[in-house]
Design a protein around this nucleic acid. Structure first.
Lengths: 221, 221
DNA sequence: GATGCCAGCTTGGTATCCCAACTTGGTATC
DNA sequence: GATACCAAGTTGGGATACCAAGCTGGCATC
């Protein structure tokens, strides 16, 4: 593994894992010493992460992108458009056996599974579902949207009931895809994403004070 | 203007303008000497252009992305999803006066306008229409898709009639948006994009031999 | 004590150097 | 003539040196 990919991967993990807080300043020299790399791979990593929206330029200098409420709502609209489009493509495929793999993925979570794993699988559900469509651009759009959302997603599900409801919705979507009912699958997916957005925005709004107290920059809608 | 942005912009223009042929190899050192910059900004530019899909890695080394017929078809599906989503958002806005600006943009082309300008305005129509939605992600998705299509678009319109028909469709879409008829606007836009895809693919298929003769790499569907 | 100013430090941007991996061309060997 | 092999060159990845701009802290001035 090259240094470049290494720095990129580790830095992304730190940002997504909130080990570096949203809004925090980053200096190339700090990253350099933190990961034991020189500035060349550091800059490459920053340029990449910038296109993912995880870091941004702050005049001179770099900043971990703040959590932006308005942006999260826009992403929800965006992902609904691309996820539904991908889903409709998938429903028209002759071979939809790929949903079995996704079904198995969902089933891999049980009561003993740590919360963090549920989150990851919940995201992967949407990503893999989009991948089934075979359209590389729709897939990437969903993957990138989920990446951007992932820092905020840990806020979303606190209670078990909401989590299990989401899982039931995932299964229902797969069932509709299995029988090729594009309209029903789309309706379910739209509702699922809408509900997710709703919970996310509400939860984030409620927790803004707490986030700010932890030093995280949160931009209001 | 910093060197970094300079190299990026000039290199992008050369690639989009087919001054560097699809499939051509690029070396960092050649770009360096060509634009009188050092390798640092060159590499920053390449990393950027890679995320735009204009250049790619070829094992070790860089290559101008070939024109990929399958990719173009996938982009057409992708852009239809995001453009229609953006259009529907726009139709729900209270203030849709932005379409006047777009209308004026269309009107700026007449029989004396060079062919290249028609192309640019035709692309900008879709980009600006998406911008009206106010959704940054849908807007960027459309802009990036149009960028990727732009190298192939010059193939599309040879005859005047097809060009004028496209313009008529543009006007019809705007008219539907103006009165807030989302369903009609979406239908027209979908048909417009579908027709565009059809002509593009046909034209590209017919010209593949010619493109290859010019040394351009073209990947079949 | 408030304020203006300057030296020094920090920062990202750029240039340049080094290196390992790979390519290439020629050559010695059979 | 075919082939194995080696030397020289090329390439991208990485490290480092240097620079201009901007920030900071402290000192002189009022």
């Amino acid at each position: 593994m090259s240094q470049m990919q290494n720095v990129e991967r580790q830095l992304r993990e730190m940002i997504l894992g909130l080990e570096i807080g949203p809004g925090e300043r980053l200096t190339e020299r700090w990253i350099e010493s933190r990961f034991g790399a020189s500035r060349t791979p550091v800059r490459a990593a920053l340029l990449r992460l910038e296109t993912e929206g995880l870091v941004g330029r702050d005049g001179r200098g770099w900043t971990v992108s703040p959590i932006n409420l308005a942006e999260l709502e826009q992403i929800a609209v965006y992902r609904e458009a691309v996820e539904v489009a991908a889903l409709r493509l998938t429903c028209r495929l002759d071979d939809r056996s790929g949903i079995d793999v996704i079904e198995a993925m969902l089933a891999s979570c049980d009561d003993t599974t740590p919360r963090e794993e549920w989150h990851r699988v919940g995201m992967d559900f949407h990503i893999e579902l989009a991948r089934l469509s075979g359209n590389e651009f729709l897939f990437r759009a969903v993957r990138d949207a989920m990446t951007r959302l992932s820092r905020a997603r840990w806020l979303e599900v606190r209670d078990e009931t909401a989590l299990h409801r989401a899982w039931a919705e995932h299964h229902a979507i797969l069932a509709a895809v299995r029988v090729g009912d594009a309209d029903e699958a789309s309706r379910l997916l739209s509702a699922h994403i809408g509900g997710s957005r709703e919970r996310l925005v509400t939860s984030l709004h409620d927790d803004r004070r707490g986030l700010r107290a932890r030093g995280f920059a949160v931009v209001a809608a």
